[in-house]
Computed example of a mutant assay.
Amino acid sequence: MKYLCLAYYDVPTYEALTPEQKSALFPKCKPHDDALRATKKLVVSASLGAAPRTARTRAGKVSITDGPYVETKEQIGGLFIIEADDFEEAMEIAAKHPAARIGEELGWVVEVRPIDRWLEPEP
């Protein structure tokens, strides 16, 4: 079964970091992703940009606005999709991700959701 893992970060805490501190965070993810990919448990991994936009329909018209759908100080900074036998294994895998490991000092967290329906891309 596949699971979507969303890595959230605390915006004010992240913005308070120096450029050197910020650049030191990202190299921690690649070795982790490479090791997980070797086990065939990692399907995809991606970092997300910090300027989201939202599209929604109101009164029959599509409205596009800046920002995330909900007001929150936490933003999604990345995602990864994993293969796991069950939710317990998915949580074990997610707990080893660097975003989960630096959560206490930087306010980061990894949310795990089962993917109910997976559509393979057409050839």
Results as ranks from 00 to 15, higher is better:
I115Q: 04
E88S: 13
E71M: 00
K96R: 15
G78I: 15
V112K: 03
I115D: 02
I82D: 02
E104P: 04
G107I: 05
W108F: 14
E89L: 06
M91T: 10
A94W: 12
E92C: 05
F87S: 00
A90S: 04
A100G: 12
M91N: 12
K73N: 04
F80Q: 03
T72N: 14
L119A: 10
A94N: 02
I82S: 06
G77W: 10
E104L: 08
I93L: 13
V110R: 02
D116K: 08
G103K: 04
D86W: 13
H97C: 14
V109G: 06
W118K: 00
K73D: 01
D116W: 14
E74L: 12
R117E: 12
E83I: 06
I115P: 02
G103H: 05
I76M: 05
A100Q: 04
R113C: 04
W118M: 03
G77T: 12
D85V: 14
I76P: 00
F87V: 07
V110A: 01
L119C: 00
A84L: 07
G78Y: 14
V112R: 00
M91C: 10
G78K: 10
T72S: 15
E71K: 05
P98S: 06
A90K: 09
V109T: 14
E111C: 04
L79M: 13
E88I: 12
G107R: 01
V110N: 01
R117V: 07
H97E: 13
I81H: 03
G78T: 14
I102D: 08
Q75H: 15
W118I: 06
P114K: 08
I115W: 05
D86C: 07
V109I: 08
F80N: 00
R117S: 03
R113Y: 14
A94G: 03
D85Y: 05
L119S: 07
A90P: 00
W118C: 01
F80Y: 13
R101K: 15
D86I: 11
K96E: 13
R117G: 01
W108D: 02
E111N: 05
E105A: 10
E111A: 07
D85A: 14
I81P: 04
E71C: 00
E83W: 08
G77Y: 07
P98A: 05
A95F: 08
A90M: 09
I82P: 00
G78L: 12
A95C: 13
E104A: 12
E104I: 06
L79P: 11
A99S: 09
E92P: 04
W118P: 00
